[in-house]
């Protein structure tokens, strides 16, 4: 327990850093599906709640509900629904975000290593054009990016190390956002009218450290996300314009603290913050601090 407290004490100052971080556009958490390979139960439900601080004065409270079905030792399928509330100088907007469907395939385990792969789809519940009183809102206030995305991923587990790579590809752009900086009354957010986003590639490295003689474990991890190109929007003259500085690397430090009540119940607390950021974050994925609490019930 003392070790847990020490590690948390080391991580907290890091979380005070400002910058751009992982939201849940999907890619940050989709790799988590790899990690749950218990064969004791066929089903599990997860409820997660998150608090995050974003760019300008925007803060977020988000929730998700997830169901995972393990068909056998090889195949698992999970479905997840997200709900997000953004609060800032424009006001408060709450809406469903996305439905995320992920299939996992676990290859036959070898001596000390284990490979698995995932294929997923993300469906938005909105066209990313939520308004307040008819006033268009930047993407920072939108609960979804408004794209149908595919996830392709591979995980390699060797002893206590996990290496994930996930590619998030927008397949269909349904984004109808209509926010213009010119008419927004603030320079805090860039124009994202009819926003088009580029794919992301994620690499995650994590190490699981069980705390001896306890139900606790701790998993520090690094998440690097490369945004593979400049996003674009349609300007007030109806011409498509690239958003310079919107491509590039984000690196997040993350720590998961897990407590197992018994074989059916466990909780996981995650704390995350970025320390390498992109120059411009038009997609609103600007979390500088994320605190995520997840409860899992297996049956």
């Amino acid at each position: 327990m003392k070790k847990v407290i020490s590690i948390v004490a080391m991580i907290v100052p890091l979380l005070m850093a400002q910058g751009q971080g992982c939201s849940d556009a999907g890619i940050c958490s989709v790799g988590k599906s790899f990690e749950n390979d218990s064969l004791v139960f066929k089903n599990s439900l997860e409820w997660g709640s998150q608090y995050a601080k974003g760019d300008a004065d925007v803060s977020y409270v988000a929730h998700f509900l997830s169901y995972t079905k393990r068909f056998n030792a090889r195949f698992a399928f999970s479905a997840k629904v997200t709900l997000s509330t953004a609060t800032g100088s424009f006001g408060t907007r709450t809406q469903f975000g996305d439905a995320i469907l992920v299939g996992n395939y676990h290859f036959r385990p070898q001596k000390k290593q284990h490979w698995s792969a995932l294929l997923g789809l993300k469906f938005p519940f909105t066209a990313s054009n939520l308004k307040i009183n008819g006033f268009s809102l930047p993407l920072d206030y939108q609960s979804s990016l408004g794209t149908i995305d595919a996830f392709l991923g591979v995980n390699w587990r060797v002893q206590r190390w996990d290496f994930n790579t996930v590619w998030q590809i927008p397949l269909v752009n349904l984004n109808k956002n209509s926010y213009f900086r010119e008419y927004g009354g603030t320079n805090d957010f860039v124009s994202t009218n009819l926003f088009e986003r580029q794919p992301d590639a994620l690499v995650k490295v994590s190490y699981t450290q069980p705390i001896p003689n306890s139900r606790w474990s701790i998993k520090p991890n690094l998440i690097a996300i490369y945004h593979l190109g400049e996003d674009s929007f349609e300007n007030i003259f109806g011409q498509r314009e690239k958003i310079q500085g919107s491509s590039g690397l984000t690196v997040n430090a993350n720590v998961n603290i897990n407590y197992v009540f018994n074989t059916s119940h466990q909780i996981d607390l995650a704390l995350a913050s970025p320390f390498v950021v992109r120059d411009v974050r038009p997609d609103g994925l600007t979390r500088s601090l994320v605190i995520n609490l997840v409860y899992q019930y297996s049956f």
Binding site: W47, L65, T85, T87, F90, T94, F96, N133
Partner: peptide, 22 residues
């Protein structure tokens, strides 16, 4: 589960605009 889902769907909210538009 159904109750939980209904609770979620009841959470959608459009608040009051607090930004002063141009």
């Amino acid at each position: 589960i159904l109750g939980l889902a209904l609770l979620l769907f009841g959470c959608q909210e459009e608040g009051v605009l607090t930004q002063t538009p141009n």
